[in-house]
Simulated scan of single mutants.
Amino acid sequence: MSSELLDALTLLEKEKGIGKDVIIEAIEAALISAYKRNFNQAQNVRVDMNLGKGTMRVFARKDVVDEVYDPRLEISVEEAQKVNPNYQIEDVIEIEVTPKDFGRIAAQTAKQVVTQRVREAERGIIYSEFIDREEDIMTGIVQRQDAKFIYVSLGKIEALLPQSEQMPNEQYKPHDRIKVYITKVEKTTKGPQIYVSRTHPGLLKRLFEKEVPEIFDGTVEVKSVAREAGDRSKISVHSEFPEVDPVGSCVGPKGQRVQAVVNELKGEKIDIVRWSKDPVEFVANALSPSKVVEVMVNEEAKATTVIVPDYQLSLAIGKRGQNARLAAKLTGWKIDIKSQSEAEQEGIYTGEKESLIDRDAFDFDEADSE
């Protein structure tokens, strides 16, 4: 029995990652529970397990008293001294009470308790592992879907991908491998519950971290991300090192790095722009690929008025206002775009200026078309 038990404990430890001590403690608790339930006992008892010999014994713990009121919990000093003359009042004596027919019923009860303990320990391990992965990405395999969720296997557990977090331009089929962003890890009565996303801006940031070594090692910093998943995104980058080109680092040789991210996001267009603490420069960069001739800043309202050449107005605003909307999200500034002729009529612009846009800004769609 001892070798079989040891083999079983070793197997559980390897498969579930649960230490032998945890399992042994669970078995002891299970045997105590089985003893009390099946033999109608209320004593304070403990279980002694000897894995070397393969024995399990039950001991009742009784208080040594002058007068016994409850024989299940107490023993007279005279009876205790028959076992050992050194026992005195208020000592605690242990008497072996292992039933001869501990048997099938007790074993079944013990099995249920052990199973529950092992399940709880396994859930705790999974929760501890995944709570540290919040706001990170993992590769999962699509398992199935229903009206509310797509279920994605992350190895030890299935994560939930809600409809609202699914990209509109993607079709998910069983066995598809996809990268997901872990948004939330919860403890529930049924175990850990993990929610993931394909639309979160954090997914874009983490993908660039994996593709761009300069971001991973901190040479280049991702300052902000604005995303309309499945369609277009903007990302601003910055480096404290003058010799490092943050935009070029993210683009990579012949656009390979950004192309890898675009492929993972099924063709989502990505604008990479240089971040600046100067709102004039930052807003002008964020409106890439359009040219900007002037940016007027209202610090109190955190708003800007941007003037662009007449022929660039539609490009600056973008389809259904998308370019301007993403630029506002990226910079955190309100952006009101006006053409030069409109600004001149309103008297807020009087002359020609060179374009303010940072030509280091990279519009992947534009570069790809060239």
Score class of each variant (00 low, 15 high):
E120M: 02
Q112F: 08
V113A: 07
K82G: 01
R117E: 03
I125M: 13
V77N: 11
R104F: 03
F102L: 14
Q88E: 15
I93N: 09
E90A: 14
E79W: 02
A107M: 07
P99H: 13
I95R: 14
F102I: 14
I75L: 07
E122G: 04
R119G: 03
I89N: 05
R117G: 04
A80F: 04
V77R: 12
E79A: 14
P85W: 04
T98D: 01
V83E: 01
V114E: 05
Y127S: 01
P99A: 08
Y127K: 13
R104V: 00
R117Q: 03
P99G: 09
R119T: 06
D91W: 06
V97A: 08
N84M: 09
I95F: 11
E120W: 06
Q81D: 02
Q112S: 01
E122A: 11
T109C: 02
Y87V: 10
D101Q: 10
R123W: 08
Q116I: 07
D91I: 12
G103Q: 03
D91L: 09
T115I: 11
E120C: 12
Q116N: 09
E74P: 06
E129A: 13
I125Y: 03
R133V: 05
A110K: 07
G103D: 05
V97E: 12
E74S: 10
A80R: 13
I95V: 14
N84E: 07
E90M: 05
E120A: 10
S76E: 06
A80Q: 10
D132K: 15
K100M: 08
E78C: 03
E129M: 11
S76P: 01
E78L: 07
V113Q: 06
V97P: 00
V83G: 02
Q88A: 14
K111R: 13
